[in-house]
C-alpha cells in the first residue's frame, strides 16, 4: 500500500491563547505547537497497515514551529519518507492548504491504484472546513471521516466510522481513497528520544516546492476573542483539606451522600 499521512501542527491549548493585535488571528509569539492529535493516530494506523499489508508510509507537513521534530519522530516510528512543504502553515486556511496539497498529490506518480491518503478527521482550528473531504473532492477520490479502524484488502479497505453513543458503522472503500482518521485501532506507539536523535543524524527531510495560493484565507473573519466568563462556576478555594470538606457539603446538598 502507498500510504500518505498528513501532519498538521496546532496550538497546544494547554497554554494560554492570545489574540493578535489585528483582532482576527492568534498571537503566534505565545503559541506552542504540537501535532494535531488525530494525526498521531493517522500515523499509527498507517504504520499498522504497512506492517500487515506491506508498502510505504510517507508523511507530509507544511512548515511550522517544531515540525522537523515531528517529521523525524514519524521516521523513527517507521515512516519511510518525510516531505516538508516550505510554506508557512499558520498563514494558510484549510481551503488554501487543500489547494496546495491537491497540487502535491496531482503530480505525476504520487497517486497509485493502491494509495491511501490519511489526514486527521478534523483539527481544532479548521474554521473553513475539514481538509480531508476538500482534498478528496479536488482529487475525485472517495472519502469517509471519523474513522476509528482500517483493515486492508486488495484494492479496497474496510473501515469503521464512529457515530454517537458508541455506535459504529462498517464501510467498504475502494482505493485510492482519502480517510479522515479520528483514532487508530491501537494507541499511538511510543518511540524513545534516543532513536529520534539517531534518525535525525541519518535521515533526510525532503522538500517539495509548491506555489503559495493567492488567497490564504477564504473567510471574512470579523474578529477573534476569548469567550466571556459567563455563567462561570461557583469556585471553591482553600487548602486541599478545605476544598474536600466543601465538596463533601456539595455532595450532601445534592443528596448523593
Amino acid at each position: 500500500m502507498n500510504l500518505y499521512v498528513l501532519l498538521k501542527m496546532v496550538p497546544d491549548t494547554v497554554e494560554e491563547l492570545e489574540v493578535a493585535a489585528d483582532g482576527k488571528s492568534l498571537d503566534s509569539e505565545f503559541l506552542r505547537f504540537k501535532l494535531s492529535e488525530p494525526d498521531d493516530h493517522a500515523l499509527e494506523q498507517a504504520l499498522i497497515l504497512k506492517e500487515k499489508m506491506g508498502g510505504k508510509v510517507t508523511v507530509v507537513a507544511f512548515d511550522a514551529p517544531e515540525v522537523d521534530d515531528v517529521l523525524f519522530t514519524a521516521l523513527a516510528k517507521g515512516a519511510d519518507r518525510a516531505v516538508k512543504i516550505p510554506l508557512n502553515q499558520a498563514s494558510l486556511g484549510t481551503v488554501a492548504s487543500a489547494k496546495v496539497l491537491t497540487e502535491f498529490f496531482a503530480a505525476a506518480g504520487a497517486l497509485t491504484s493502491d494509495s491511501l491518503l490519511l489526514p486527521g478527521s478534523q483539527a481544532i482550528d479548521d474554521l473553513e472546513g475539514e481538509l480531508a473531504p476538500l482534498l478528496a473532492a479536488a482529487l475525485k477520490l472517495p472519502y469517509i471521516g471519523v474513522v476509528c479502524g482500517v483493515t486492508g484488502d486488495a484494492g479496497k479497505v474496510t473501515v469503521l466510522k464512529e457515530f454517537a453513543g458508541g455506535l459504529r458503522g462498517e464501510f467498504e472503500v475502494t482505493l485510492p481513497a482519502v480517510l479522515g482518521i479520528q483514532s487508530a485501532e491501537k494507541p499511538p506507539r511510543y518511540v524513545p528520544v534516543a532513536k529520534v536523535r539517531a534518525v535525525m543524524k541519518s535521515a533526510q527531510i525532503e522538500e517539495a516546492a509548491l506555489a503559495s495560493p493567492e488567497q490564504p484565507i477564504q473567510l471574512d473573519i470579523e474578529r477573534m476573542y476569548k469567550p466571556e466568563a459567563a455563567g462561570r462556576a461557583q469556585m471553591i478555594e482553600g487548602s486541599t483539606e478545605e476544598v474536600a470538606d466543601q465538596l463533601v457539603e456539595v455532595l450532601a446538598k445534592n443528596s448523593v451522600i
Partner: peptide
C-alpha cells in the same frame, strides 16, 4: 455531527461556497 462530518466541506469544494465550521 459524526454522521454529517465532511458533507459541508464536500459541498463547499463542489460549489465554491464559503463554509463556516
Amino acid at each position: 455531527t459524526n454522521v454529517s462530518l465532511g458533507i459541508g466541506s464536500t459541498l463547499a469544494a463542489q460549489t465554491g461556497l464559503p463554509l463556516v465550521n
